[in-house]
Structures are given as structure tokens and as C-alpha cells.
Design a protein around this nucleic acid. Structure first.
Lengths: 134, 134
DNA sequence: CTAATTGCAAAAGCTTTGCAGCGCA
DNA sequence: TGCGCTGCAAAGCTTTTGCAATTAG
């Protein structure tokens, strides 16, 4: 089944690609850095170079299989594309990443862009939060 | 007047700091990378090292004089804090950065965070847009 | 068989840091 | 004078790239 996705994307079905796709699909935390994926491969005893991880993730992104996020902190985070767009909330205490979706915010963004004479192509919205009580 | 801001931040009034503050205040494009600031210093014939630019910008950020953004593309962009919060729209054709503010979006963000049991500490919203007609 | 793919190591950006000397208060 | 600050160069990190060897179709 994964093979179909790869072929459709015009990519040869190779062991590194299949493995990386599986890791992204089965990870408990769906938000993984290239390094995270690489570590998962090592734990699974797979001989894949870090450079290949980066190359494959970039190809997956271009193929639309994966979405790349640039959260604070310099490194990219990848996430399997499940067809349901959402934004992120990052807890500053625990680092936990929570997904959310607000149709209203989406619509307002589009309106803002258009009121300035532009078409909205993409957007990045990240809320940095803290546990409420304290 | 700049000196006051520096002193209040607990920073000694040194030539590099004053110069960098002036550059940020007077720049035509208020969004500058460390490299941009460095180049501006060179053009002004000031002998300031790039490392110092980074150190000073980080200090300014901590002092609240400047805001740091992490747009796509790996490098940080700094901007003088003028007290008026706003978000950004980046044109993918021209690279132009446009500021905007939507009170409604701000409020919705807060609501989203709280509905998940968190306090909203900060947020990052960037719209990636294209000229409308095409 | 042949072009695509991979691993390794080197290189490339951006940013940070160690350290000796300089300068503000 | 003393501690903070700066410059320079070196190191750190994430990510990219060159190249020869390997592999899918």
C-alpha cells in the first residue's frame, strides 16, 4: 500500500523510502525531526544514512506525502499528511505539540490576504502556550 | 534617548549597541537579518564583528527592544519593537513582507488555547501569499 | 542495462562560544 | 581600576552536496 504512494509520486520503491514512510506513519508522536527519523531507523537496525533521510523527507514533502514545519529552534519537523489541515500549539513547559483547527481563523486569514490584494497560498500558525493553573 | 533604553535594559552604552539600535530604527525595511545589520554597519564604516551583532541582537531581544522572527528559510529576522503587535504576510514572488493585525484572529487564538486548558503566551502567524491577478 | 538512489564525507549556512585585549562607568 | 564588552577565529548544528558504488525496474 505504501508502495502505491511511492510509485504515484514517481519514486522508486527502495528500502529506505519504505522504512521512513512506515516510521512516520507509525510514530506515536507524529511530529518528527530528521534526526528523530534517523534514530528510529537506527533502533530498527536499518542501515540508512542521515543524508538519505533528509533527501527522502524532502522528496516526500514535494510529493505531498509529508508536511514540513519550521517551529522555533532552528530545525525542521516533519509530519505525515493525513489530508486534514490543522495548526499547532506548542507547550513551552513540556514541549508537547497539540493540533487544532479553527475554520473561522482560516477564513479570516484568507480575508486578510485578499484585502491586501493577495491570494493566500499557505500559512503557518503556531501558538506558544503554558498550562493554565500555575 | 537610545541611551536610556540601553541603560534601562542593564546594558552599557557602547558604540556597537547604539549603532545597531539606530540602524534598526532607521531602516527602510524594518525586518532585518543579522547579516543585514552587519552589512549596514559595514556601509556605515563601523568596525563591528558579526559575532557582536548576534550577541547584541540577542540581548535586545531579551530586553524586549526587538522581536525575533523565524520565517521559513533557516535564518532569523529581527524587528524593532514599537509596541504594536502585528503578524506578517510574506509574498512568495517578491519576498516582500507586509504587516497586518486582526483583533478577531488574536481573540480566537486565545480562545483556542484556553479551550485546551492553556494560557496563550505567544504566537507566530505568517501568511504566505501571491499577487492576486496572475 | 541504465538511470535513479544511496552512503560517506566534506561543505555550506547560520549562529554561538572561548579567549585575550579594550573600554565604559 | 574592574567588570563588562568586543573581535577574531574556531566550533556547533542542521541541512545540503559531490561522487563512486549499488540497486530497482
Amino acid at each position: 500500500m505504501d508502495n502505491q504512494q511511492l510509485k504515484k509520486a514517481g519514486l522508486k520503491v527502495t528500502l529506505p523510502r519504505v522504512k521512513i514512510l512506515q516510521i512516520l506513519e507509525n510514530s506515536e508522536d507524529p511530529h518528527m525531526s530528521a534526526e528523530d527519523v534517523y534514530k528510529a531507523l537506527m533502533e530498527a537496525e536499518e542501515e540508512v544514512g542521515l543524508a538519505t533521510v533528509y533527501r527522502v523527507l524532502t522528496q516526500f514533502e514535494q510529493a505531498g506525502l509529508v508536511v514540513r514545519h519550521n517551529f522555533e529552534g532552528g530545525h525542521s519537523v516533519f509530519e505525515i499528511e493525513r489530508g486534514e489541515h490543522h495548526d499547532h500549539m506548542v507547550c513551552m513547559k513540556t514541549g508537547k505539540v497539540i493540533e487544532f483547527h479553527s475554520e473561522t481563523i482560516e477564513r479570516l486569514q484568507k480575508e486578510v490576504a485578499e484585502s491586501h490584494g493577495y491570494d493566500l497560498v499557505d500559512h503557518s500558525l503556531v501558538l506558544y502556550v503554558e498550562p493554565k493553573d500555575k
